[in-house]
Design a binder for these strands. Structure first.
Length: 606
DNA sequence: GTAGGGTTAG
C-alpha cells in the first residue's frame, strides 16, 4: 500500500495547504491524519527498513512526511533518524525549523548525546545556513526556553569543536541576543579556540559578555583569558585579571601563575625574568606550590634570556624542592645548552637523563639533533638519527626538516632532496617548513627557478606557502639587490591572508639599508608600525647598522637611545655593530653590556 | 574529553 494514499487518499500532498500554527510551521489537522500511517512509518524507521520506507514515501514530499511524524508525537529519536535518512536519500536539506524542532524534543527527552552527534555532522556540512537563521530556528523550535538554551549551547560547542570558531563566536553573540543562557562547558572551549586563533579582542568581548550574562566563570575560563592576554603581550591586563578573578570567587591556581610566568618569559622586555621570578614569589606567598611545569617554564625562560646560570640555579631549586625533572625538563635543558653551544654538556645531560630512568622522546632527539646540526657536527646528527630507528623512536617531520635544513646550509642539496624523498617513502609527510628549508637552500645557491618549481610542488601537495616562505623569497630578492621587487611581495602576503612578521619587515629594511636607501628603510618601518608592530631589537640593529654604514653616527646613537627608552634589551649584535662608534663617542659597556656615558652626566642608561 | 611548559624553516 502506498504511503501517500495512506495519509490523504486521492489527494496530492504537494497541493495541500495546511493550517499554520502561530510560529508559522505547517501543521496537520488531526482529522486529516490517517492514524494507522505513522505507526507503519515509525516501525520501518526503528527497524531500519530503509528500502521499504523508500517505496513507502517516494511519492510523498519528504518534508511533509517529517512534519507528519513530528506532529504525531512519535519518538524524537526516530524522527531524527528519518531526518538524516531523508536528507541523504533525497539529497535535500530539511528545513531548519523542523530540524530544530526535533532537536528540541530530543533535548526534552534528555537525549543529549544524540543531539551532540547530530550537531557535529550538522556543522560539518552545513551549507549556506547563516548562524542567525539557525538561531531563528532554535527560537521557534519549542516552548521550553531552558531547552532552547541547551540546544544553543550545544551548537556553540559543536562549532568550536569542529574548528569553526568564528561561527561559534557568532553563535555565542546570537545566543546573547535571544537571551539563551550558555554554559562554561561550551564557553570555555570557545574562549580557548579564539585564543588559539589569536582573536584576543573577541576573547575579551566574550569574557565581558560572560560576566554580563552571569555565566559562572570557573578557573579554566579565567586561565584561558589570562593565557590569551599573555600571548599578545598584555601582561599587565593578565595580571589584573588574576586579581579580578578573586572578586568572582575564583582563586588563581598553579596553572594561572604558570601562564603568567610563561607570559613574562616570552616577552622581549628588559628585566622579564625578574618579573617572572616575582610571580613565582607571589604564588608561593599565596600558598600555591610551583610544580614541574613552573620550573620548566623558568628554566626555558632563563636560557632564552641567555642566562645559563639563572637556568642552572632554578634547576637546582627545583630538585631541592623535591620535584623530579621530567622528560620535558631535560629537553629544555638540552636545548638550552645546545643554544649556548655547549653540546658536550648537553650530551652529558642526555646520559644523566637516561641513567635517571627517563627515556628520551622524539623531541629530545630532535633537540640534540638540532644542537649537532647548528654546531657543525652534522655527522653526529646523522648517527643520532640512525639510532632513532634502532631504539624505536619514530622520526617525525621535524626530525627530517632539521636534517634537511642542515644539509641545505651545508650546501648538500642533493642529500637534502634525497632525505625529502626518503621521508615520503616512510610515510612522513613533509611540512611547509620542510619545503621552506629546501627553498632557502635553493635560493642561497641562487637557483630561483628551482625554488619556484618547488613552490609549485608544494601547491600540488596542498601545502600553502606561509609567511616564512615569503620571508625567504624576500631575503633572496634583497640579497640580489632587488629590494624594490621584494617589497611588492607585501601586497601578495596580505592578499593571501597572511601577516608579515617582524622578520618580514626587518629583512626588507635590511635590504634597503644595504642598498644605502635609508629613506625606503624608514618607510618600511612606518608601514610596519602602521600595522601595529613596534620596532624590535632586530629592527633597531638593522637600522643602526644602516646609519653606521652611512657614517650617520648621531642617528645611530639616537636609535640606540630610543630602543633603551622603549625597554628593549640590546643584544650582542647591537653592540658589535656600534661598539667602535660608541666607544669613540665616549660610551663604554659595563659588565652587563649596558653602556655608560662616561663623558656626560647621564646616569646609567638601561 | 575541558587551562599552563620543550624541538624545525626566516
Amino acid at each position: 500500500m502506498h504511503f501517500k494514499s495512506h495519509i490523504f487518499p486521492g489527494r496530492s500532498l504537494q497541493g495541500t495547504v495546511f493550517p499554520r500554527n502561530k510560529q508559522g510551521i505547517k501543521q496537520f489537522s488531526s482529522l486529516s491524519i490517517d492514524e494507522s500511517c505513522t505507526p507503519t512509518i515509525t516501525d520501518l524507521i526503528s527497524k531500519q527498513h530503509w528500502s521499504k520506507l523508500k517505496t513507502h514515501v517516494q511519492n510523498a514530499d519528504p518534508t511533509t512526511v517529517l512534519q507528519q511524524l513530528l506532529n504525531s508525537g512519535a519518538d524524537p529519536e526516530l524522527n531524527l533518524r528519518y531526518l538524516t535518512w531523508s536528507q541523504r536519500e533525497f539529497k535535500l536539506s530539511q528545513s531548519l525549523e523542523l530540524t530544530f524542532r526535533i532537536l528540541h524534543s530530543l533535548a526534552l527527552a534528555k537525549k543529549y548525546s544524540k543531539i551532540r552527534s547530530f550537531l557535529d555532522k550538522f556543522v560539518k556540512d552545513e551549507k549556506d545556513y547563516s548562524v542567525s537563521a539557525v538561531f531563528h530556528a532554535i527560537s521557534l523550535s519549542g516552548d521550553s526556553f531552558c531547552v532552547k538554551s541547551i540546544v544553543a549551547d550545544m551548537l556553540v560547542l559543536a562549532y568550536v569543536r569542529n574548528l569553526k570558531t568564528l561561527r561559534g563566536f557568532e553563535a555565542f553573540k546570537r545566543a546573547g541576543d535571544y537571551g539563551f543562557k550558555l554554559s562554561v562547558t561550551s564557553c570555555n572551549p570557545l574562549l580557548s579556540g579564539l585564543v588559539k586563533e589569536g582573536k584576543i579582542r573577541d576573547v575579551e568581548f566574550a569574557y565581558g559578555e560572560m560576566i554580563k550574562r552571569k555565566i559562572e566563570l570557573d578557573v579554566i575560563s579565567f586561565n584561558t583569558v589570562v593565557n590569551g592576554l599573555c600571548k599578545v603581550g598584555k601582561l599587565n591586563r593578565a595580571g589584573d585579571l588574576t586579581e579580578d578573578m578573586k572578586v568572582w570567587g575564583v582563586s588563581p591556581n598553579v596553572i594561572t601563575y604558570n601562564t603568567l610566568i610563561a607570559g613574562y618569559c616570552k616577552m622581549g622586555r628588559i628585566g622579564k625574568m625578574h618579573k617572572a621570578d616575582a610571580v613565582l614569589k607571589e604564588m608561593v606567598a599565596k600558598g600555591v606550590s610551583p610544580d614541574e611545569v613552573t620550573y620548566n617554564i623558568l628554566i626555558d625562560g632563563f636560557y632564552k634570556d641567555e642566562n645559563a646560570s639563572g637556568a642552572t640555579r632554578v634547576f637546582g631549586e627545583m630538585q631541592r624542592k623535591g620535584l623530579k625533572p621530567n622528560v620535558m625538563t631535560y629537553n629544555i635543558l638540552i636545548n638550552g645548552l645546545c643554544s649556548d653551544k655547549k653540546v658536550d654538556e648537553a650530551v652529558a645531560l642526555w646520559d644523566q637523563m637516561v641513567s635517571s630512568g627517563l627515556e628520551p622522546n622524539v623531541v629530545t632527539h630532535n633537540t640534540l639533533l638540532n644542537g649537532f646540526c647548528k654546531n657543525k657536527t652534522v655527522n653526529e646528527a646523522i648517527k643520532l638519527f640512525n639510532d632513532m630507528a634502532k631504539k624505536g623512536v619514530d622520526p617525525n617531520a621535524r626530525t627530517y626538516t632539521t636534517l634537511i635544513d642542515a644539509y641545505c646550509k651545508d650546501r648538500r642539496l642533493e642529500d637534502a632532496f634525497a632525505l625529502r624523498d626518503s621521508m615520503i617513502d616512510r610515510g612522513v609527510f613533509p611540512e611547509v617548513s620542510t619545503y621552506n628549508s629546501l627553498i632557502a637552500g635553493l635560493c642561497r645557491k641562487g637557483d630561483v627557478e628551482a625554488a619556484m618549481k618547488l613552490m609549485d610542488e608544494m601547491a600540488g601537495k596542498k601545502l600553502n606557502p606561509d609567511i616564512v616562505t615569503y620571508n625567504i623569497l624576500i631575503d633572496s630578492l634583497c640579497n640580489r639587490g632587488e629590494s624594490r621587487t621584494a617589497v611588492k611581495l607585501l601586497d601578495e602576503i596580505f592578499s593571501k591572508g597572511l601577516n608579515p612578521t617582524h622578520v618580514t619587515y626587518n629583512t626588507l629594511m635590511d635590504g634597503y639599508c644595504r642598498e644605502g636607501n635609508l629613506r625606503a628603510a624608514s618607510n618600511v618601518r612606518k608601514r610596519m608600525e602602521s600595522k601595529g608592530k613596534q620596532a624590535n631589537v632586530v629592527t633597531y640593529n638593522v637600522l643602526i647598522k644602516g646609519f653606521c654604514l652611512k657614517g650617520k653616527l648621531e642617528d645611530a646613537n639616537g636609535l640606540l637611545n630610543e630602543m633603551l627608552e622603549r625597554g628593549l634589551v640590546p643584544n650582542r649584535t647591537t653592540y658589535e655593530i656600534i661598539k667602535e662608534e660608541m666607544m669613540v663617542k665616549g660610551f663604554v659597556p659595563d659588565i652587563e653590556g649596558h653602556f655608560y656615558n662616561v663623558s656626560g652626566t647621564d646616569s646609567k642608561r638601561k
